[in-house]
């Protein structure tokens, strides 16, 4: 049975005097225990809002969340504020993008990590601080006994992100959500943090939802990848399958537009035309149609439904044909 079942998750933002805006539009996916699931997309595709909705961190006023988020048979969306607070940090951990703004600047690192243990496991401050030093050591912070009495500004960006991971993993949650955990970091530090996350997830059996715009990060980490566009999942597949044969024109376009380190030089990039602002609403068409090289008339008139193609979920009227099929057609 799945650890987390997200069904038809929809988030609508409504500001007074403005048109309601649907940021997440009927997103469904499962996370199995110990599995790493990726949510990939560009800015504005709804990947972060999805994670905030799962964690119950969206404002009550202004944001309407519908659908269901089942975590081991409990629908997280139906829990009260207090019940949710008991869950966050204990069963569900979260790591945010910007480590400096996620830490309290006037409280020492040690106390911030210890707080989680005090709240959820009823430890005394003294015991929790000793435990905190152990956790910092586990995430690779050198000299943890000194670091627990330091403030966030005294730590480097990579160290802060490690401290945040230590906080998220303090109570051994069964699910960790990492929202662009390495975007603010340099590549060499990014590599450190990713290998740390990978190791911790393997050791503790924690399931991970990895939210990122970087297809490279996903390629090395996730078991299953969901590609989001305009608030909907447009393609979902196992990572080897997805990268070897992207079927949705958006996924295909993204992969063709990234300069690759191992590609022969002088090869021209194939950008996706236009920008996210060209989107049309999903309810009467495919949102990606204005930018899509494969768009047919039907794409601008009928909303594509999610369909299973083998082990892959696809939302497209005219998907990219796999290379093997193309050569077959050519030979005929």
């Amino acid at each position: 049975m799945a650890l987390l079942e997200v069904r038809d998750l929809t988030v609508v933002f409504q500001r007074r005097g403005e048109q309601p805006f649907t940021a997440v539009d009927g997103v469904s996916f499962d996370v199995e225990p110990g599995q790493t699931v990726g949510l990939v997309g560009e800015s504005g595709c709804g990947k972060s809002v999805t994670s905030l909705a799962i964690m119950g961190l969206l404002p009550k006023r202004g944001a309407t969340v519908t659908g269901s988020v089942k975590f081991e048979d409990t629908d997280l969306l139906r829990l009260s504020g207090n019940q949710m607070r008991d869950r966050r940090g204990r069963d569900l951990g979260m790591v945010f993008q910007d480590p400096l703004s996620s830490l309290n600047p006037v409280i020492t690192i040690g106390v911030q990590v210890a707080e989680v243990l005090e709240r959820h496991q009823g430890m005394s401050r003294k015991k929790a601080l000793t435990e905190a030093a152990g956790l910092l050591d586990k995430v690779g912070i050198p000299d943890p006994n000194r670091r627990i009495s330091e403030y966030p500004h005294q730590l480097s960006g990579g160290m802060r992100q490690r401290a945040l991971i230590a906080m998220a993993l303090a109570c051994k949650p069964r699910l960790l959500i990492a929202d662009e955990p390495t975007t603010a970091l340099d590549v060499t530090i990014q590599a450190q943090i990713l290998s740390l996350l990978k190791g911790l997830v393997q050791d503790t059996g924690t399931a991970l939802i990895m939210i990122t715009h970087d297809l490279g990060v996903v390629a090395g980490l996730c078991d299953e990848v969901n590609v989001l566009y305009g608030g909907r999942v447009v393609e979902r597949a196992e990572r080897h399958e997805l990268f070897a044969e992207p079927r949705h024109p958006y996924t295909h376009g993204l992969l063709a537009s990234i300069p690759r380190l191992d590609a022969p030089r002088g090869e021209r990039l194939m950008p996706i035309t236009g920008s996210v602002s060209d989107n049309i609403p999903w309810d009467s068409a495919c949102a990606f149609a204005p930018r899509c090289p494969n768009a047919l008339d039907v794409c601008r008139e009928v909303t594509p439904e999610q369909e299973w193609r083998g082990s892959r979920l696809l939302r497209c009227h005219n998907p990219v044909q796999p290379a093997a099929a193309e050569t077959e057609e050519a030979s005929v």
Binding site: T188, Q190, L194, A219, R239, R260, L261
Partner: peptide
Amino acid sequence: LSAIPVPDPEIE
């Protein structure tokens, strides 16, 4: 160079 992720699981 070794730290830069490549969008290809086979290589990764």
